[in-house]
Design a protein around this nucleic acid. Structure first.
Length: 365
RNA sequence: CCCUGCUUAGCUUAACGGCAGAGCAGUCGGCUGUAAACCGACCAGUCCCAGUUCGACUCUGGGAGCAGGGA
């Protein structure tokens, strides 16, 4: 479970122990939806300091399917990754109108991603799925409303999310396994609904708590308002997970509010599109100004890409849309992000988090 | 010197005589629990000069440039 080592204000650093894996908090999980992040393999993810990743239980249960996962000895062995594996429930895939058919009280009716046939995911099935996959931490099936939904819809989502969480918890308890189960708190950007949902979810006593349905287009102040409204009701000794976040700025702010855990496709997706993290802010390597630039992406970065290749070369590869370029860019962004998390943890341990945050934000424009 | 063909945005090209469009390149944004090496915006054009016509990238005449062929 979570062992808190140092606290500074609401920010804390600690160790999350799951299934004899140990992950220092706060940490960032690269998104490994189908068992592979794009343009970077799982060994590379390990090597550059990703102690945890998140896969998608729903997608994996469709392909390669649960039989393969079972026969291949579970997710860790199958994808050859030693760190902690979280799985997402598939609730987020409601966000894709290509996948979503409808939701009922029973569960989510999906269109099967590869053939389009209909597929009902219930909380119970979802628990079986994620447990068969063998992840270290599973997520409850939640009802994820689109950004901009009216309050009535968010209210409905909160009630459904709590109801499903109850069924998830009950079924997960029956399975009897070391796998952790996280409850997800919805509520859009309405503080009262966030509070209501947090109380309802926390009452069910999960191993960890996630804030869902955020960072989907709302302004950052709204994101934080929502987290703030909910996080007060989450027990201190339980890990808190802000799903889908994100950018360095958002992570810093969330850490100072007491969040321990993040995941986002942001570093890998933006890398492919040319956006590179540096200590001075983001740059787009696709721009002509880097054509003759002999510097590494970030002069203070120690990653494989920065130690070996110039901006000019990465610019060139990007222009030609070369897969190797995408790989090198992805390695940089993920490495940079993991180094960023290390520095956050270090600064909390030294009681200098607020100074670190301030200094970072001054330079990161 | 003669004959033939061609000329539309930086490049490759659309448009019965009826609103000059597109792809690539370029510039600028965006990307946040990934069926997304993506999405959006902007920039920019009829080789030149006359003529016919309500109206010309399109038809006629002249010129320039390029390519091929013949002396």
């Amino acid at each position: 479970m979570l062992e808190i080592i140092t606290e500074q204000g609401s920010a804390r650093t600690g160790k999350l122990k799951i299934n004899n894996k140990e992950v220092e908090t706060p940490f960032f999980m690269p998104v490994v939806t189908k068992g592979a992040a794009k343009f970077i393999n799982n060994k590379e993810l390990e090597q550059i300091g990703s102690d945890a990743i998140i896969c998608n239980g729903f997608i994996l249960s469709v392909k390669p399917g649960l039989n393969v996962l079972r026969k291949m000895g579970g997710i860790h062995k199958f994808i050859n990754y030693k760190g902690a594996v979280f799985t997402d429930s598939g609730g987020f895939q409601m966000y894709s109108d290509k996948l979503l058919e409808k939701t009922t009280d029973e569960g989510i009716h999906f269109k099967e991603p590869f053939h389009g046939s209909k597929l009902l995911i219930t909380p119970e099935k979802d628990m079986e799925m994620q447990n068969t996959i063998g992840s270290d931490a599973a997520m409850c099936l939640d009802d994820m409303p689109l950004y901009g939904s009216d309050k009535k819809r968010i209210q409905e989502s909160v009630l459904k999310t709590i109801k499903w969480a109850k069924r998830c918890k009950k079924h997960h308890d029956e399975i009897k396994d070391k796998q952790l189960l996280f409850g997800i708190i919805q509520g859009g950007t309405y503080p009262d609904l966030r509070e209501f949902c947090a109380r309802g979810i926390v009452a069910l006593d999960f191993d960890g708590y996630a804030f869902g349905g955020l960072a989907i287009g709302e302004p950052p102040e709204e994101t934080f308002k929502a987290v703030e409204a909910a996080i007060k009701f989450v027990p201190k000794e339980k890990p808190r997970y802000l799903m889908g976040v994100g950018t360095p700025e958002l992570i810093l702010e969330a850490v100072s509010m007491g969040v321990d855990c993040f995941d986002s496709r942001y570093p890998t997706m933006t890398a492919r599109n040319g956006t590179m993290f540096t200590g001075k802010g983001q740059i787009n390597i696709d721009k002509k100004e880097f054509e003759y630039d002999e510097k590494p992406i970030d002069e203070e970065c120690e990653c494989f890409t920065c130690k070996n290749f110039t901006r000019a070369y990465l610019h060139h590869l990007t222009r030609l849309n070369e897969p190797t370029g995408h790989t090198l860019k992805t390695i940089h962004n993920v490495s940079w992000m993991q180094e960023f998390m290390r520095r956050i943890r270090e600064s909390i341990k030294q009681g200098k988090f607020e100074e670190y945050k301030k200094r970072f934000l001054e330079k990161f424009t």
